[in-house]
Amino acid sequence: MRAPSTLHPLTSLTAAGCTAVITTAAGTWPLSLAVALAAVVLARRAGAGRRVLGTAAAVLLPLGLSLLLLHGLFFPEGRTVLAAWGPARVTAEGLAFAWEAGTRTGACVLVLLLFSFTVSAPDLVAALAARGLPPQFGFVLASALTLLPAMAGRLERIRAAQESRGLVLRGGVLPRLAAVRLQMVPLVLGLIEESGNRAQALDARGFGAAGPRTSYRQVTDPPAQRRLRTAMLLLTAAAVALRLVASWPGAGPV
């Protein structure tokens, strides 16, 4: 098996999206768990294991704890009561619900993070533009993905500048809010000012003009991967159709 980074970006996007949808449609925790484990293994192999796991933990831990608290203690539909303190009742159904929902979301998050942390953003933008998506979409995507990592350093510089002018980052809520305002206004002002300059530069180079565009970046798309994508999309459509037909409201048990 080749590393995911050598796949065409649309192939990995389709694979991630289809896996997430099929996992949701199936809705059984063994499959969710298997998908999550597979995503972790693939991420490690692609050398992004630590980043994927770190980001996923930041997203999933609060969600998982919240689900456990919510359904573990309060699940009025539950019948098998394991323990009860006053209004709080630990039920087997509630715990199962939290486990099902948690593993399903966990699998989807891991798979999608595996995609976004292994794909090359310029390749993805070029591939999407070649598929006829508006070039504006590619610009917003690529621009945001490059702007975001630069923000931490920028905020750091603004804070250092304000601190050198006497800003104190301590105290209660009100001084803190004042400190936030002193950092926020220069950040927003700088970003908007910059974007105005960028708009003029882009317009001078014909960004807003209509008509065909030539791309400097060519992403090879082997026919085998095209067939793979079609197959995955068909499989996903079948899974969704099956789930919709099987549990259409009033059609029988879920």
Binding site: V21, T24, A25, A26, G27, E77, G78, R79, E93, A96, F97, E100, A101, R104, V240, R243, L244, S247, W248, P249, P253, V254
Partner: peptide, 12 residues
């Protein structure tokens, strides 16, 4: 009745 687990149908 959601005692059988989260509904995949509604999620989709």
């Amino acid at each position: 009745d959601i005692a059988n687990g989260p509904a995949s149908f509604s999620a989709l």
